[in-house]
Amino acid sequence: MNFDNLQLLEQRIRSKEHFISLMQQSSAQVTTSFVNPFSVKVLAEKPDLIRQIDHFYVDGGLYVKLFNLFGAGDKINRCSFDFSSVACDFFSYCQNHQIKIALIGAKPEEITVAVANIQQKYSQLNIAYVRHGYFADAGQREQCFAEINASGASALICGMGTPQQEQLIVAAREACPQVRFFSTCGGFFTQTSLDIEYWHPLMNRLGLRWLQRAVQHSHVRNRILRDYPLFIWHYLKYALKQRRNKDNAS
């Protein structure tokens, strides 16, 4: 992991309250994304992409604990784009203020069911544009941007996995000037296609969402067993380096 790039990313990390305030008050274009021990490793190799995302939020309890123990910034709390966190705030706000939104991500059959489930929960939500997250070429992506412009959407939520989702919202900011708020959402659409109440109440209350996902999805199990221990090791090395640099500077 590139520690310099990790520091660059962590300088942009904010807490849940910041996301909620930002989505309600943003008048200029803003890009936001969410990171966990897997995605932060991917982004740490892409400093140019990090610089084009205005704010990051931490959607996993492990990273939150490490950041609060060793990070140089203010203490944060978990912030995830799902119905256990800020997705409820986002959709409620958009529905109450009749904000047109565009949703991109997941497989074709997943996004169709996910949108139906979302609209069942938020019957007055103005979903102006929907598309799955698979693009055969640049032409299809440009066509997507043209359709978003035609839809009049002013907020875009994208769930395509890292770094594809971050790359798409960065490109969309340039191509869709009327969209003000851009955010990634990871696996939210896939989860929501399975069940609008995806999180089991007990798992949610005990903070064991990671365990539920590990049981349900093999790729999550692989990440927890392979990537998360490596992340802890690399993050502790990063924190030690940061502390040494601070001691030397003083």
Rank of each mutant, 00 (worst) to 15 (best):
I157T: 04
T112N: 10
L168V: 15
K16T: 12
V113C: 07
T162V: 15
Q29T: 08
I224S: 05
D74C: 04
C158R: 00
I157H: 04
S193C: 12
K16L: 07
Y134W: 02
G159P: 02
V35K: 02
P47V: 11
F145H: 12
L230F: 05
R243C: 03
D74H: 10
R14Y: 00
S21W: 15
P37E: 13
K241M: 12
R205M: 06
H132C: 10
Q167I: 08
L202C: 02
Y228T: 02
S85M: 07
P108R: 01
Y198P: 01
D137N: 15
Q167D: 07
S92T: 15
Q24I: 03
A136Q: 11
L8K: 15
A214L: 09
N68V: 10
F181E: 04
Q25C: 04
L230P: 03
C94Q: 13
F188T: 07
L66R: 01
P108H: 00
E174G: 04
Q124H: 03
K246N: 10
Q7I: 04
K41H: 07
N245M: 10
G60Q: 10
G186Q: 08
G139E: 12
A150E: 11
S33Y: 04
N36R: 09
Q7G: 11
R173G: 11
A214R: 00
R221E: 05
A249F: 07
L156D: 08
F91C: 14
D247E: 08
D137E: 03
A138V: 12
A28N: 15
C79T: 14
L49K: 08
E45C: 06
D195K: 10
L208Q: 00
V86L: 05
L9V: 06
L202F: 14
S15H: 12
Q212G: 12
H132L: 01
Q165C: 08
C176M: 11
S33C: 13
R209Q: 14
G105T: 09
F231R: 04
A128V: 12
A155Q: 08
Y93S: 12
Q98I: 03
S92D: 13
Y235A: 03
I127K: 09
A106I: 07
F181I: 13
L206M: 12
I50M: 07
S151I: 09
S154E: 11
V42P: 00
S92G: 12
G133W: 13
D137F: 09
G152L: 10
